[in-house]
Amino acid sequence: MTTPAQHKGTPAQPPVLHIAGIGPCLGRVAAVAANTLREAGRARLFYGVLGAAVLLLAFSLVLSDLALVDQKARLVQSFGMAAIPLVGAVSATLLGVVLLHKEIDKKTLYAILPKPIRRSEFVLGKFTGLAVLLGLQLAALVLCWWPVLVMRGGALTPALGRAIGLCLFELWLVTAVAMFFSALTRPVLSGVFTLGVLVVGRSNYVIADLLGANKGVFVEVPAMRALGKVLVAVVPDLSTFAVADPVLHGWSVPWDYFAAAAGYGLSWTVLFLVGAVFLFERRDLT
């Protein structure tokens, strides 16, 4: 505190604040997103998951040697299309659950929220940062996978590209779910709930089939039938985004399907984000 007294604290020329309007609002969201990206990008957790994914893809190269000659590319494709969404889902769950809670636990929020920023802008900024990070992670994994695929005689077809694109919408949805639970409860429970949504969401169509069957526990036990109906109604159907198998069997993922699935994913993402904002705005930061 060495500057002359007349300059202490107050600038010679007062700064101009831009608070109101959509521009400053987006600016605040972008500021939080950039900081989230920086924070998550420096997390060991992120690099651990990324490293494991790269090893997994390298392993597919070794594994493909054991396959029949005409099945090598198919094996690498199959392996990649299973590993990439899985790794993404793990990242989305962990980062979505941890990052918001960390802000509260480490009390970094106490210096941020008293600024002219709405809690909704903060949640949206956090989500945007994670969404960009997951996109970058997905791109990095595809870049690692692509040469392996080419080495084994395969190619990154437009259908595969669209299938990977749908993974991204699923990851954003999982991130929103994780943030929703993170705004509600502690990280371990948030993680468990998010994994629950992931598992139920992926098997949503199975539950729907069981509900429509002639017999079985979902038909014969009223409580299970009610539970099944509730799960099908309130848990997003994540199998919409899991198109790896049909693609491997030659399905082209038409653009109209892609658009409908993307719209479905974004709608659920927005819904969970609205829920996260609703909960977070009512939360006392003690």
């Binding site: 700064p15 101009v16 604040l17 831009h18 600016g27 605040r28 500021a31 941020i112």
Partner: peptide, 17 residues
Amino acid sequence: DYVGKLYGLAAADRSRR
């Protein structure tokens, strides 16, 4: 700089402050 962005300060103002 981050705090300055939350107040909507321009880049030049943030740098000066």
